[in-house]
Design a protein around this nucleic acid. Sequence first.
DNA 1: CATTGTGAACTTGTTCACAGCT
DNA 2: AGCTGTGAACAAGTTCACAATG
Lengths: 233, 233
Amino acid sequence: MTQAPGTRRDIPDATVARLPVYLRALRALTAAGIDVVSSEDLAQAAGVRSTGLRKDLSHLGSYGVRGVGYDVARLSDEIARELGLQHDWAVAIVGMGNLGHALAAYSGFATRGFKVRWLVDEDPEVIGTVIAGLTVIGFDELAMVAGDGLIAVIATPPTAAQDVADQMTRMGVRSILNFAPCVLQVPEGVEVRKVDLATELQILAFHEQRGRDEDDDAARLGVHAARVAEAAR
Amino acid sequence: MTQAPGTRRDIPDATVARLPVYLRALRALTAAGIDVVSSEDLAQAAGVRSTGLRKDLSHLGSYGVRGVGYDVARLSDEIARELGLQHDWAVAIVGMGNLGHALAAYSGFATRGFKVRWLVDEDPEVIGTVIAGLTVIGFDELAMVAGDGLIAVIATPPTAAQDVADQMTRMGVRSILNFAPCVLQVPEGVEVRKVDLATELQILAFHEQRGRDEDDDAARLGVHAARVAEAAR
DNA sequence: CATTGTGAACTTGTTCACAGCT
DNA sequence: AGCTGTGAACAAGTTCACAATG
């Protein structure tokens, strides 16, 4: 079986995770009026190495010109297409606490392919109130209006998160962004990504502690002065 | 040179990133009154495979008992120690917009080893106001009070983020959690972790689109009925 | 004898070196 | 001449199979 036209040339997960970053950098270049960029410069802007960038882009096909670089507009389109961003995706935010509020008001979604279309809560006190121009609805109402391809953002307390996930998957949602600090159990085929603030801080704490120990080692070895000098450029 | 006591047996990054999840699961077990757990059960709770969990824990040392499992309290302590969570870490949140507000009010930090100690903004209108029980201060004031080991959370618009990062690193901060959708340039030795909401959604969009295409393929191949039956268990 | 801990096999991701184009 | 695209080497991470052991 050969590669049919339009067949998924499968792109490594690590590459997919970087495409949004490239896209953002490309959009910034467009805004700056730059329309051709080398892998070296784009890599710099995206915080990766040029050789890795080229390998990533090679998975999408050959859109660069040797000796010249990449056409910014063309590459943007190509990446956007690959990520499925030709049209906007509808997003439902569930859980209207502090975080839910902030997410509802966050302007960064609209410019990057997402339309917050529904705000959901289970508290009757909250249902019906208007947040950031949208009326908060309950699950039953969401179940009636939710279309295909809806992306759910869970911003509830962790105790409620699994129940919310169950309800969402039952109504056909296949993509979930989970802000609740807990592991979600979902049926196969449902993709969950998590954002866990405390976890991120704990990872930083590990490195902070390690850095400290290294400083101790350095001091013991008398390297400290050299390091300070270096830090001062 | 042999492994001195207390020397960094270096733990793989991938393992470090999972330790917080294990810790959370262990704390939940403690709360439930369970004091011994098998790798199988803990892995389930943490959303990983038992064999991977055991490999991860093996990097910390041997704290399990063969034929029995792990002592929940002991393992919790061990992981907390490894992450440097014996004492709380001070956190400064910079940028008091929507997101900054929500983060300042977020209760999930305190219970997991972090104390939000400073709220920072550059707007004179905002400086001096009280948010979640803390008075917002300016950078100059932060520079005077900030001690060693401070963790900075950047919740400013992307245009301000690099400047903030520069100021923070200049005052000795070595750990940054960046919520602004941009790449930060920092000196060597400074650890940056980023949380980018739109990026996460774009990764989900990729999988959502791919799932859709696969459904199309399946339908074309007449596999759809089988899949539906399977999904219904 | 159930369960941990681990070398070895495998898979995925990154870097290097350089051939291939324009 | 300059920059992309890519196979080959290397490194990191995951899974497997099973020996070790309380």
